[in-house]
Design a protein around this nucleic acid. Structure first.
Length: 324
DNA sequence: ACTATTTCCTGGATGC
DNA sequence: TGCATCCAGGAAATAG
């Protein structure tokens, strides 16, 4: 898109705006992982690594990405079979089934806990590997020979001969394990929640609706981009206090949030197949943003310039004409 | 109990 | 050319 297409003279745009647009574009290239991206990545991983066994684990020396003690992560992941990969909020949850180690198998120790004795023949010790991608994190399924990125923080060697790698240059991502498989993400799933529960989330809240949408303890999975997009579609300004929204507006927001997320998942799902492969990083189609990153560009509905303000330290984009 | 603000972290772009 | 500064983001920590 060239300046001419926007109907604006180049001198109308400040250099700062230009720089910000460029930055937003670059951020886009990283595919900031919000709910739809994480969903797509989790599905891709599920297809690739479910059934495989983690033989051994290497963890990097940088402490930030590790939320659980390194020793605990290692002990939990090694000798575990991956039974599935799914998404909870913005978290990737890798379900694990602990396998008895070789040394334990020899003495034929009784593996069945007393509580379930007689019900099931073999004990299934469940655990979970929880991954949060932060801003720039990625989970790659690689061949062992693939060059190791310098920002690699964890490598799980799989019995199939492949490796599952966690790479994150900015180290906002987090790794942790849940030894009993009881990870709780907090908040409700935007795509599962019913309208009544959704409406109740915002009752009596004085905080701007944008902040409430970003609060993972209320709704989990919505990030800065999809919050802006959902509010635009619902015709609600990001600074509106949550409690002041009418029931009708909340209903509209409910629909918009689900619409935006579902559309993004559909787009991701159709093109993500190679994203998690180190060699096949083709990226994936993204939902056409209507306001996010479009400061000073004409609103796609009314042509008024899109505004940018800062809420809770995050840039927020909206059309002052279409959103009330 | 809520809400608002600050902090962490890097790489790429800009400013002087 | 180079060095300092800014900026993006999620969530935990801190302050009010």
């Amino acid at each position: 898109m060239k300046p001419d297409d926007w109907g604006l003279k180049p001198e109308d745009r400040s250099q700062k705006t230009e720089a910000r647009r460029l930055t937003t574009f670059l951020v886009d290239c990283f595919f900031m992982p919000e709910l739809p991206e994480v969903e797509t990545i989790a599905r891709g991983l599920d297809k690739r690594v479910t059934g495989d066994v983690i033989d051994s684990v290497w963890l990097g020396s940088k402490p930030e990405p590790l939320k659980s003690p390194a020793a605990e992560i290692g002990a939990t992941l090694e000798h575990s079979r991956i039974t599935g990969v799914r998404r909870m909020g913005k978290h990737i949850v890798i379900d694990l089934e602990r396998l008895r180690s070789r040394s334990n198998r020899k003495p034929k120790r009784r593996a069945t806990p007393k509580t379930s004795r007689g019900k099931k023949p073999q004990a299934r010790v469940l655990a979970q590997w929880i991954v949060h991608l932060g801003m720039t994190g990625s989970m790659l399924v690689c061949s062992p020979g693939a060059p190791v990125d310098k920002h690699t923080h964890a490598i799980a060697q799989l019995a199939s001969g492949r490796e599952l790698r966690f790479v994150d240059p900015r180290r906002f991502g987090r790794l942790s394990v849940s030894r009993n498989g009881g990870f709780e993400a907090g908040g409700v799933e935007p795509l599962d929640v019913d309208l009544e529960t959704f409406v109740r989330l915002f009752r009596g809240r004085k905080t701007p609706i944008k902040s409430a949408l970003l609060n993972q303890k209320l709704l989990r999975g919505v990030g800065n981009i999809y919050a802006d997009e959902a509010l635009f579609r619902a015709g609600i300004r990001p600074r509106r206090r949550a409690a002041t929204l009418t029931r009708e507006q909340l209903g509209s927001l409910y629909v918009s949030v689900q619409e935006v997320l579902k559309e993004a998942i559909a787009l991701g799902g159709s093109s993500i197949s190679d994203y998690v492969d180190a060699d096949g990083e083709e990226g994936f189609f993204q939902l056409q943003h209507r306001v996010y990153g479009r400061e000073a560009e004409p609103c796609l509905v009314c042509k008024a310039p899109v505004k940018r303000i800062v809420i809770a330290g995050r840039s927020s984009h909206y059309c002052a004409n279409c959103q009330k």
